[in-house]
């Protein structure tokens, strides 16, 4: 996906609820207002688990 683009906008574009994921760049997290460039690679990690023990 082409940058520059803020993390919030990326999640919105992908139709992902920001409450349900973390966005990881390199070895740390990034907040929604961070601007991502063309060269950035991010992991969008789901955080929702389904067990009801």
């Amino acid at each position: 996906m082409a940058g520059p683009m803020r993390v919030h906008a990326l999640l919105e574009r992908l139709e992902i609820n920001r409450e349900s994921v973390l966005v990881i760049r390199g070895d740390t997290l990034v907040t929604g207002d961070v601007q991502l460039g063309d060269e950035d690679e991010v992991e969008i990690r789901p955080v929702v688990s389904g067990g009801v023990a």
Partner: peptide, 15 residues
């Protein structure tokens, strides 16, 4: 995610 939990009601409530 646990493969047994996929699509369960609890996940729907979380969504």
């Amino acid at each position: 995610e646990c493969p047994m939990a996929a699509g369960n009601r609890h996940l729907g409530y979380k969504d």
